[in-house]
C-alpha cells in the first residue's frame, strides 16, 4: 500500500488536470482491501472482481460529493459493503432461495478446497464464517480480519456500537461452536 495521504488524493482529484492521476493513486492504495472485503463476502474470485470494479466506478462517480471531514476509507468500505449485500440479495432472488441456503452453499464450497490453498483449518473457519447472516459476517470480518474499531464499523454500517458488540459476540460464539463441532 502506498503512503500517500487521503487528503492529498482528494486534493488532486478536485483538480481536473490531476483527476486521473489521483484516481490511479486511490485504486493503488485501496484495491486490495476492497477486493478482500468482497472476496470474503462472496467467495468466488470472479464475483469479487466484478464487485471491486463496480465499487471503484461508484467511487469515481461520487468522489466529487465526498465530504472531506469524513474518512475516505470508511466511505469506500460502506460502498463496498452495500455492493456485497446487494449482490448476495440478488443471488438469492435469482436462485429463489433463502440467504441461509446461499450461506450454506458458500460454506459447502470450502469442502472442495478449490478456492482455498488446501489449508483444512482455514477451510473450517471460512466455512463457519459463511454460515453467518450477511451483516454479522461483515461485522465479524471487519473486526477479526481488518481489526477495525467498533466506532469505525459503526460509521460504515450505520449500526450502534452496542448493537455491533452484541452482533460480533454472537458471531464469534457461532464460529466457536462450529469449530468445536467439526473437530
Amino acid at each position: 500500500m502506498m503512503g500517500i495521504a487521503d487528503s492529498e488524493i482528494l486534493e488532486k482529484f478536485s483538480r481536473e488536470s490531476t483527476r486521473n492521476e489521483a484516481f490511479g493513486l486511490l485504486i493503488q492504495k485501496y484495491q486490495e482491501k476492497i477486493y478482500w472485503l468482497c472476496r470474503r463476502m462472496v467467495i468466488d474470485h470472479d464475483d469479487a472482481d466484478d464487485l471491486v470494479q463496480e465499487v471503484f466506478i461508484k467511487v469515481w462517480k461520487n468522489l466529487d460529493g465526498f465530504r472531506a471531514d469524513a474518512q475516505l476509507y470508511s466511505w469506500m468500505y460502506r460502498i463496498a459493503s452495500n455492493e456485497c449485500l446487494q449482490f448476495l440479495k440478488k443471488q438469492k432472488q435469482r436462485n429463489q432461495t433463502s440467504l441461509d441456503d446461499v450461506n450454506h452453499h458458500l460454506a459447502d464450497q470450502y469442502g472442495s478446497l478449490d478456492v482455498l490453498n488446501g489449508d483444512q483449518i482455514q477451510a473450517k473457519l471460512y466455512s463457519a464464517i459463511a454460515t453467518l447472516p450477511e451483516k454479522q459476517k461483515l461485522i465479524f470480518q471487519m473486526k477479526y480480519f481488518d481489526e477495525m474499531k467498533y466506532e469505525e464499523i459503526s460509521t460504515i454500517l450505520g449500526t450502534s456500537v452496542g448493537g455491533l458488540k452484541a452482533s460480533f459476540h454472537l458471531a464469534v460464539k457461532k464460529i466457536e461452536e462450529h469449530l468445536k463441532n467439526n473437530d
Binding site: E32, Y35, V115, L116, A123
Partner: peptide, 19 residues
C-alpha cells in the same frame, strides 16, 4: 492468514481494468 487463491498478476492488472 489469508487462505484464498488469487490469479497471478491479478492486482497488477486490476488498476488498468478499473480505469
Amino acid at each position: 492468514k489469508n487462505p484464498y487463491l488469487v490469479p497471478d498478476g491479478y492486482f497488477e492488472s486490476l488498476q488498468s481494468r478499473i480505469e
